[in-house]
């Protein structure tokens, strides 16, 4: 598979080309709030390498309102309607490497589950190609290099793109990815292009690691560490950390009736809400906030490590930036590792 370059002025042509037989979605900024994944119809200008806050890729893979089925109850017309899962193939362009990693974590939960593979997730995932941008301007909250190996994470993408100023360096990673690089606007990279691309990579890999890097939190963490209570006092239980997190994927299932149609859908839920674990008969196995604070951290740094052999946190920093009381997961994990932040 050969690397290529494309002039930024030709980016639109490439997007339009892909849009002929794919939905092409990219982070689109709004007047306010994080950028969101939208179909760009091949025509819109996109700023794929911008250092902006972007909603996690779960916005597409696990939509906030995911219809499972509808039941029509009008007399004589009763029927079950299952959504059409044979959707068009989709290209997500403008993911970061942490977003690619997050999809690997979601895959572990929803896809690599043998007979329990989730049909709704799989329908989207099977036809999804990931075009990831190599970050050249990390945000203040980023700590990807602390929790993982970016050279391994990049293998989860189909195409990698690196901003070289007036051009974009394009590297196919998989055959699916190579198939996306059609058009005479691609050319072979010059030696200078290769050097520049390697520089961006080297800068990214040189992102300072936090001292807790490499420590196996799953083995050293204490269930009774006073840190849980300390953080719980501050925590207001808003759940933003999990709503924004690219790997948090807990859901609720709701029924809603409109006229004669009953709709069953899946929507977000979070372990930070006190009714998350509330049983029908009123028992709540996680009644205290400290248990919920602990759950979020341990799910990522212990349970998913034990279950899937991967850290469920990608170091994307979304929770770090968004928590309104400055609960910083990097601080909690540093404390557990007995290291400074």
């Amino acid at each position: 598979m050969a690397d290529k370059v494309i002039a930024k002025t030709d980016l639109r042509k490439w997007l339009a080309g892909m849009a002929a037989d794919h939905d092409v979605i990219a982070p689109i900024g709004r007047e306010a709030g994080p950028a969101t994944w939208k179909d760009i119809n091949g025509t819109q200008d996109i700023d794929i390498t911008a250092n902006q806050m972007v909603m996690a890729a779960k916005e597409f893979l696990l939509p906030v309102h995911d219809v499972l089925f509808r039941f029509h109850t009008r007399k004589g017309e009763e029927r079950l309607e299952v959504p059409d899962l044979t959707n068009k193939s989709t290209v997500m362009i403008g993911l970061r490497l942490c977003d690619v990693r997050a999809i690997s974590v979601l895959d572990a939960v929803y896809y690599n589950q043998g007979p329990f593979r989730d049909a709704y997730y799989a329908a989207r995932r099977d036809k999804l190609a990931l075009v990831a941008a190599v970050c050249d301007d990390p945000r203040w909250s980023c700590f990807c290099t602390t929790v993982g190996d970016l050279k391994e994470w990049k293998l989860g993408a189909d195409v990698l793109i690196t901003d070289l100023g007036d051009k974009i360096y394009v590297q196919p990673v998989t055959e699916k990815g190579e198939g996306l690089l059609q058009g005479d606007f691609f050319s072979s990279p010059s030696e200078d292009d290769v050097r520049k691309k390697s520089e961006v990579w080297a800068n990214l890999l040189a992102l300072p690691k936090r001292p807790f890097a490499g420590k196996d939190i799953s083995k050293i963490v204490s269930w009774d560490d006073p840190v849980w209570e300390e953080q719980a006092r501050k925590c207001i239980g808003c759940g933003i950390c999990t709503f924004m997190c690219p790997t948090c994927s807990c859901f609720d299932i709701q029924d809603e009736t409109t006229g004669s149609v009953i709709e069953r859908y899946r929507c977000r839920d979070t372990c930070q809400f006190s009714d998350f674990t509330m049983m029908g008969a009123g028992h709540n196995p996680r009644p205290e906030k400290k248990m919920r604070v602990r759950q979020r951290v341990l799910h990522k740094f212990k349970y998913q490590v034990e279950q899937f052999d991967l850290i469920g946190c990608t170091g994307c920093g979304r929770c770090v930036e968004s928590c309104p009381v400055n609960i910083d997961i990097r601080g909690i994990v540093s404390h557990i590792a007995a290291e400074p932040l």
């Binding site: 207001i236 239980g237 808003c238 759940g239 933003i240 709503f243 977000r268 979070t270 309104p324």
Partner: peptide, 9 residues
């Protein structure tokens, strides 16, 4: 996204 953070804070 109805996280209700506006309410919790």
């Amino acid at each position: 996204i109805r996280c209700y953070a506006c309410r919790q804070i």
